[in-house]
Design a protein around this nucleic acid. Structure first.
Lengths: 415, 415
DNA sequence: TCAGTTTGTCATCTTCACCGACAAACGTCG
DNA sequence: CGACGTTTGTCGGTGAAGATGACAAACTGA
């Protein structure tokens, strides 16, 4: 079981284990820390209002977090209102840090993200196709992590390490089952990276589209929205499903492979071995092909296509129209399945969407049930290409946010 | 917000509100009551082992449940093991009852279900197409409820009332948005039925496929399995999605309309207005049509078709083969989206499955990603046609199981 | 019948949040 | 500039709930 779900089990809706008063403390500390992490600094009185706890309880809880160096308190700047000013609690950004890693197809990124979601330092390097092997990737990541660590506060704690990988990730053991774009197959990536880093904290690995969805829901366009469908498309199409504010992982963590839903059973063969998968109709390759270009023209070819569309070139408009139809068909099906209140489009699909939004909307209106689609909004991703990286950081923070002091005890002894 | 999610919010993973010691008590009472409701009678020492609470805590908690007449304690039958025997706690079935209602296409069912999931009394009546109007339906339900109530223990409490309807149900206000098979449109069904029954407890309404899924996960073939895809098909196709043991409802409760996922965009028109929805390829109508029968032959025609298949009649086998292909295509897509560990087939699809399981498996193997489908099992429904009714009862129990004493206070004052 | 084992019960302790009184720190008004 | 009202932190006391540990009860088996 992943760390996220296990630490939360104590307070889930069907807890097998009993609740003790100690659990109450940990839950209330978690509430406050989550509040500060996600919504930024807040005065004590704001915390009182939001949690419903008393002033004395909040005082004690914040005090404990301060003692643990997770939170600082500062005098409030006077805002003109009467009464004694309430000190403002803020997360200690510099000394509570997660490392986030993104293993993309042609680039590698590492970031250090402080509590509160502040990016302290980030690096992204392009890399040639020859260096995507597992060992080379791990070597490169370790080197980047060392560079990033050198910049950090020497007294800082590494709370967790989160990794996003373009591929199918088994979240029960942080291994990569298959990553076609990297040529990986059954790699115990989490364990190997952890060993290479010499870290005692578990390296959490997840699918990059799932992490992008997490990032958008936590800090992006979908912040605060509980039922979200995130669709990420470049060469392939992936997705992240969020229900009640929590990502749907599936039994082993493979959920969200929406690019391989059959939409055209007699269509093109897919690299997954099936035929007519959604990504064979909305991926970058077909779009370029339909506009008369080479399917592996890459980003530059897409730019040219969109320029053509701006200029009104018929072949470009036609290719986009076909794209719009299939995009609408796939999204409509997923709306019927999930009934989200927001659909977020990332990657290529986010770039293309402004050109075809009307056609996509029309197709959805035709294909999705009226009840299910009522109130749904389609929006482009807010975090762009760094969404998986930000999601990886959030994944690494989850353990701390679920049980602050308990996690800290483990982190401090692991050094 | 539905009662289920609101009562659980206090202990969900992201509680906005603080946790008090009173909440601890209510959570622990809930744990014990859930244990007894779902897993049957248990000795106190078993409860100690399962919850991790101490003997004294369990004693006090069980005592409180006994005082509330939710639980009885009896001396254990000696089982040959040494030591002082632990009294066995069992739910009080007869006096804690929910009413379950199932509004199906051509029948109506009402049941009284006692705590622990025991069906105390159930009635199902077929009804002609002329009586499906809202008012007639409500009249019939009220009459059936009165008959059922007459059989119950005069001292029993009605804990809740749950209703399943063949149609799209808005769970935020228990209204039926649209039920094509009944000709209903925007009906405040929950409120109207509640008024007609003269009840003060909220009548909870949900989609019948969602409820069938709930029933299968709580007490059927999928008991204890956390990620389940339930596919229910007769004339139309519906579904219930379960992730982490909890049903996925979507933003307004419309999630699970898997029958309207586009699988054949240039296929048959669907009664929903779209084209090539999954149910146009796997519903009862096409299956009969493909075997050379009238599409509205109903259950008898299906029986004849299956008899033909047993006898090896080519047209029947061919129709089933086509059915198998489309069934596999749809399920494969949903496996890629959800990564369940079990797929449950209900209704017609459950009946047909034994005839075509190999072909369906083969299609899934071709269409679903290897990682996602690994370990997935397809099984027919265990509860059959009564699954929605049983699910309605479970829906009605949820409030009590989330906060036993708090709910009881409301129930007792409402009479 | 007696030792061994398991379990219920009871008094006491610890933890944690609530409550109420008081003091501190601010703005405002005369 | 100082008194007043307002808001908020702090501190001691209270109550609820589970943990602890000693002791009694109830069963098995020799």
């Amino acid at each position: 079981m992943s760390a996220v779900s296990s630490t939360r089990a104590a307070f889930s809706s069907t807890p097998s284990t009993g609740v003790r008063s100690e659990t109450v403390r940990s839950a209330n500390l978690a509430i406050i820390l989550r509040e500060l992490h996600f919504h930024g600094p807040a005065s004590r009185s704001e915390l009182v209002a939001r949690t419903g706890l008393t002033r004395s309880a909040i005082g004690a809880l914040v005090g404990e977090l301060v003692k643990a160096d997770l939170v600082t308190e500062q005098r409030a700047a006077s805002d003109g209102s009467p009464g004694r000013p309430s000190p403002v609690a803020a997360p200690v950004v510099d000394r509570n840090v997660t490392l986030a890693v993104d293993v993309a197809v042609d680039s590698l990124a590492v970031a250090a993200v402080g509590l509160g979601g502040v990016v302290l330092h980030a690096e992204r390097v392009d890399r040639p196709r020859e260096r995507v092997a597992v060992d080379a990737t791990i070597d490169d990541i370790v080197a980047m992590v060392r560079r990033v660590e050198a910049v950090l506060d020497p007294n800082c704690r590494i709370i967790g390490i989160g990794v996003g990988v373009v591929g199918l990730v088994n979240r029960t053991d942080n291994s990569v089952s298959i990553a076609p774009n990297l040529g990986w197959h059954d790699v115990a990536f989490g364990a190997r990276l952890q060993h290479a880093l010499g870290s005692r904290t578990e390296v959490l690995v997840s699918n990059d589209a799932d992490l992008a969805a997490l990032a958008e829901v936590r800090r992006g366009v979908a912040a605060g929205i509980r039922d979200v469908l995130y669709v990420w498309g470049e060469v392939g199409v992936g997705g992240g499903l969020v229900s009640r504010g929590e990502p749907i992982t599936g039994a082993a963590g493979f959920a969200g492979e929406i690019g391989h839903v059959p939409v055209n059973p007699d269509g093109r063969p897919c690299r997954c071995g099936s035929v007519g998968c959604w990504e064979t109709e909305v991926g970058e390759g077909v779009l370029l092909e339909r506009s008369g270009r080479s399917p592996d023209g890459g980003r530059d070819a897409v730019d040219a296509l969109l320029a053509d569309a701006d200029a009104g070139v018929p072949s470009a408009l036609e290719a986009l129209a076909v794209q719009a139809r299939w995009l609408g068909i796939g999204i409509a099906g997923l709306i019927n399945v999930m009934n989200p209140s927001m659909v977020v489009l990332g990657g290529l699909l986010g770039r293309v969407h402004p050109y075809i939004s009307d056609q996509v909307d029309a197709e959805i209106e035709r294909r999705a049930l009226e009840s299910s689609r009522r109130g749904v909004v389609l929006v482009p991703s807010a975090l762009g290409g760094d969404a998986p990286l930000m999601g990886a950081a959030e994944l690494a923070f989850e353990r701390l946010l679920a049980d602050p002091l308990g996690t800290l005890r483990k982190v401090s002894t692991s050094r």
